[in-house]
Each structure stands twice: as structure tokens, then as C-alpha cells.
């Protein structure tokens, strides 16, 4: 288990996540893509912390902050989805085209 291998796995997760975030039509699936990208970030951060930074405590804190970002993103994201659905009964990104009019 080398850092390079680890980062490759993280890169794969980020790549798949990016694909998901760009391609999915529905909000919730789009958020899954974002989460998967953050998953890759988590893995890379722990890898750096463990194998390249000699266990500097700030590395662990970075992981926790990333998780906090995920939690915030999810909570606000879902709240927005609920609010949008309540008013427009839409759950697709494209249903919000009307905002442009």
C-alpha cells in the first residue's frame, strides 16, 4: 500500500463522482456524485496524513472538516430540494429552467 496507489484510488473515486455530478438529472443523484468526490478527498487526505505528513494532527482535522462540509452540504441541499419540490413539484435540475425566464 503505497501513497501512489492510494491516491490513484482516490482519483478514481473523484472521477466517478464527477461523472455522476455532471450527468445525473435529479438533484439527489447529483448530490450522490458530490459525496463520492468528497469520499475520494477523504481518502487522499488520510493517505497524505498517514504516509507523507508523519501524522501531523492538522491532517486529521482536515478530514473532520471535510466531513463537516459533507454534512452541511447534505443538510442544506436536501432542505433546498424539499423547498423546491414543495413549491414546484420538481426534482430535476432542468425543471428549474424557468428561473431563467
Amino acid at each position: 500500500m503505497t501513497l501512489t496507489a492510494l491516491l490513484l484510488v482516490a482519483a478514481a473515486l473523484i472521477g466517478i463522482g464527477l461523472y455522476g455530478a455532471l450527468s445525473q438529472q435529479s438533484f439527489v443523484m447529483l448530490m450522490m456524485g458530490l459525496e463520492l468526490m468528497l469520499n475520494g478527498v477523504l481518502l487522499a487526505a488520510v493517505g497524505f496524513w498517514s504516509l507523507a505528513a508523519g501524522g501531523a494532527p492538522a491532517g486529521q482535522l482536515l478530514v473532520i472538516i471535510t466531513m463537516a462540509v459533507m454534512a452541511v452540504e447534505m443538510a442544506v441541499g436536501f432542505a433546498l430540494i424539499a423547498a423546491v419540490y414543495r413549491n414546484r413539484q420538481a426534482d430535476m435540475t432542468e425543471s428549474l429552467d424557468t428561473m431563467k425566464h
Binding site: A11, S50, A52
Partner: peptide, 23 residues
Amino acid sequence: AGAAAFVGLAIAIFTTGFPHDPV
């Protein structure tokens, strides 16, 4: 885009020298 991200990151990983300092 996903594939490009992966390839780009992979290139970056292979071309960057990381310090080896395990916990």
C-alpha cells in the same frame, strides 16, 4: 469529464514526488 479528471489526477500523482514520512 470524469475520465479526464481521473487521468489528470493520475498524471499529477505520478509526476509529483511525495515525501515519505509515515505515521
